[in-house]
Write a protein that binds this DNA or RNA. Structure first.
Lengths: 216, 216
DNA sequence: GGTTTTAGCTACGGAATCGTATCCAACATG
DNA sequence: CATGTTGGATACGATTCCGTAGCTAAAACC
C-alpha cells in the first residue's frame, strides 16, 4: 500500500532509494527515461506532465527542467534510447524461418516492455495531429535505425533468387508489421508464436508467390 | 483572426451563431459531438477537457454536465453516432472490384472526416492502457456495426466457390484493414486509390490463392 | 581534504480545469 | 399567452500543473 495514485486512478510507484543518496548522470537519466515512458503509457502524450514524470522517477521537477523543456522531449529521447537494435538477419537458407524470426524480434521488443510499446503508440497517434512531432518521431526515433524487420529478409532472398524480386514491393514488405500492429490494437496483446506463423504462412509467403505447403 | 488558441497553440474555432438564439436537443447534441471529436483529435483523449469541448461547441460547461460525466463519455457516443454504416456488398460477380470498393469505403470514411479518424485512433490507443475503455470501445462503437469491410466480400465469394473457403482465415480477412491502418500511421494520410489497388493485388488476392494477372 | 558540479528540496504566483451553484432567458407546449 | 423545460452565462473554491528561484548537500574531481 505504499503507492500513491494519480488523478485518474493510475498506479504510480515512485522510485524509492535509501534516503541521503543520489543518482547522477546516466543512472539518473535512465530512471527518468523509464518514468517518462511509464507516464506516457498511462496518461498519453498529451496527458503526460513534468510533475508526473518527476514523481514516477522519484526526482525533483528542477532536475527535469535542467535537461529538458517538455515531456515530449524526454519521451522521444527515451524511445530512441530503447529502440530495438537490428539483429542482422542470420541469413541461413531458410526464408520462412527468417521471416518468423523477424516478426518475433518485433513482437518481443513489445512483449518484454509493454509500457514501451504503449508509449510508442501513444506518440505515434499524437503525432498525427502534429506534423512537427511526426517529423521528429521519424527523424529521431525510427530513421536512425535503418531497415526494419521483414523487409531485410525478403530482400535477402530476392537477391538469392528464392523469391521474385518484383514481388517484394513496399506493400508486401509492410504486411508483417501491419498485421502485428493490428493484432495489438485489437487485442491489447502482442501476438503469440502461432499467430506469427499464420501471418507468415497465410499472408506474407503467398504475397511473394510461395505456397508454404511446398516448403516441407 | 477571430480564432482563439488553446494552451498548446491548437486552433480552436468556437461555434458562433446569432446571439440571443439557442440550440436544443439533437442540434445541440450534434454540435457537442463534433466538438468532442475535434477536441480529442487535437489534444488526445487524455488531453481533452470538458472546458475545451464546451468552448469548441460554443456552449456552456453546465450544458455538458447535464448529459455527460466526462469527456470520454461524449467522445464514445460521438464515435458511435458517426461510425460508417455498412453498405451491404453489391455482390456483383467481381471479387477484385468488391475488395477495392470495401477498402475505399473504409478509406473514405476517414478521408472525408479526418478529425473523426484521428479521434478514433486516439481512443483506440488510449484504451490500450485502460481495459475498461477498450471494452467500452468495442462494445459501444465497433460491435454494434457487425461484420466489416473486406471479410464480408471474401466470405461471399467463398460461398460462391470463387475462392477456397479454407483460405479465408481471420488473418487474411484482416490484411486490408491492417494495411490501411499502417499506411495512415506512417504517412498521416489515407491511402489513395492506387495504393488500395496494390493492397488488393499484392496482398489480399495472393493470400486467397488468386493471381490478379489471371483476372482479366 | 577542499573544490566544483549536479541532485534534491521547498516554495511561489500564475494559469487551466474541475465540478457545482445560481440566475436568467430562449424555446416548446398547450 | 401562460407555463414548464432546457440551454446559456457567470461565479466560485479546490486542485493540478506550470516554470522559476533559492538553498542545501551528495557525488565526483583534483
Amino acid at each position: 500500500m505504499d503507492e500513491t495514485r494519480g488523478a485518474d486512478g493510475t498506479a504510480e510507484a515512485p522510485e524509492t532509494r535509501p534516503k541521503g543518496t543520489r543518482r547522477r548522470g546516466a543512472a539518473l537519466v535512465g530512471a527518468i527515461h523509464a518514468a517518462a515512458v511509464e507516464e506516457t503509457a498511462a496518461r498519453g502524450l498529451e496527458g503526460a506532465t513534468m510533475e508526473g514524470i518527476a514523481r514516477r522517477a522519484g526526482t525533483a521537477k528542477t532536475s527535469l527542467y535542467r535537461r529538458w523543456e517538455a515531456p515530449e522531449d524526454i519521451v522521444l529521447e527515451a524511445l530512441h534510447a530503447a529502440y530495438p537494435m537490428e539483429e542482422p538477419t542470420p541469413a541461413a537458407d531458410d526464408l520462412r524461418g527468417d521471416l518468423v524470426r523477424a516478426l518475433r524480434l518485433m513482437r518481443d521488443s513489445f512483449d518484454t516492455r509493454p509500457k514501451y510499446a504503449q508509449a510508442l503508440m501513444a506518440v505515434l497517434v499524437a503525432s498525427w495531429a502534429r506534423p512537427d512531432l511526426h517529423e521528429r518521431l521519424y527523424r529521431e526515433v525510427f530513421d536512425p535505425r535503418g531497415e526494419r524487420f521483414t523487409k531485410r529478409a525478403l530482400l535477402h532472398y530476392a537477391d538469392k533468387g528464392v523469391v521474385d524480386r518484383e514481388r517484394v514491393t513496399d506493400v508486401v514488405a509492410d504486411i508483417g508489421e501491419a498485421m502485428v500492429f493490428k493484432h495489438m490494437l485489437d487485442t491489447m496483446q502482442p501476438p503469440d508464436d502461432a499467430y506469427l506463423d499464420m501471418i507468415v504462412d497465410q499472408a506474407i509467403l503467398p504475397a511473394v508467390g510461395i505456397d508454404p505447403r511446398t516448403l516441407s
